[in-house]
Amino acid sequence: MRALAADPSTDAQIASARGLVKIYGTGAAQVRALDGIDVDIARGELTAVMGPSGSGKSTLMHCMAGLDTATAGRILVDGEDIGAANERRLTKLRRNRIGFVFQAFNLIPTLTAAENITLPLDIARRPVDQDWFDAVVDAVGLRDRLAHRPAELSGGQQQRVACARALVSRPAVVFADEPTGNLDSRSAAEVLSFLRRSVDELGQSVVMVTHDPTAASYAHRVLFLADGRLVAEVEHPTPDTVLDVLRDLSGPARGAHTSAPTAARTAEPVR
């Protein structure tokens, strides 16, 4: 494993967490979704996060992106202390420094693809840098779809629009929670290669959650979560090395553990 930075606020890491704990619910229904996570996300890298269902991947993304508040621990994103920020500050951060891609439902149905992409800039009343916009649009290959509304785009195209939107404001870091979860392998490849290129060519920092070893192999580094803890890590992954780690983790000893949070998840009230 990579050694943790002694001072997380240095330039080498774009985001970092120390002693991160997230507890849902109280009493018997209590779930420790994150159970003391220490992690550094390197600047200018594509980092993948993997782990069984219910292991806390989404929770980690949400907490680091300032969408949710941690129960304990410290989070720094681009030098900013997320835990100490109030709602106004968080809104600003989301607008300017953080990009987020959800697994599904990423676009506003009433806006065109182009409008969806520039939405964060419009919200922040920042001018659109046309060169950068063109670069991003070309990178996702959506030039001829810009005037279309989400309903007129395929699932893969929609996710690429969402990725473009996450990148257009040049955020310090993009968090993507299963961006390819709903896509077939071809569409998934489109989105993943775009994310990788944004890192390699545009210098972005990206963190992405995935269940797919092939997807993870696009990353510079893969982090493995289980039961809310960081349990393994692979540098320069290939699908095979990732699969090996997964097989190790889902051994008999782990299986018993993963079933409990899964049960808790299904017991969640339907809203």
């Binding site: 992106a65 969408l67 709602e87 106004r88 809104t91 600003k92 989301r94 607008r95 300017n96 987020f100 959800f102 439902f105 990423n106 676009l107 506003i108 149905p109 939405l119 964060p120 919200i123 922040a124 939107r165």
Partner: peptide
């Protein structure tokens, strides 16, 4: 609701 959540996630302020 989901749309509003999304807008807020990409940085739309409460006042906005």
């Amino acid at each position: 609701t989901r749309e509003i959540g999304l807008l807020r996630a990409v940085g739309l302020g409460r006042l906005q």
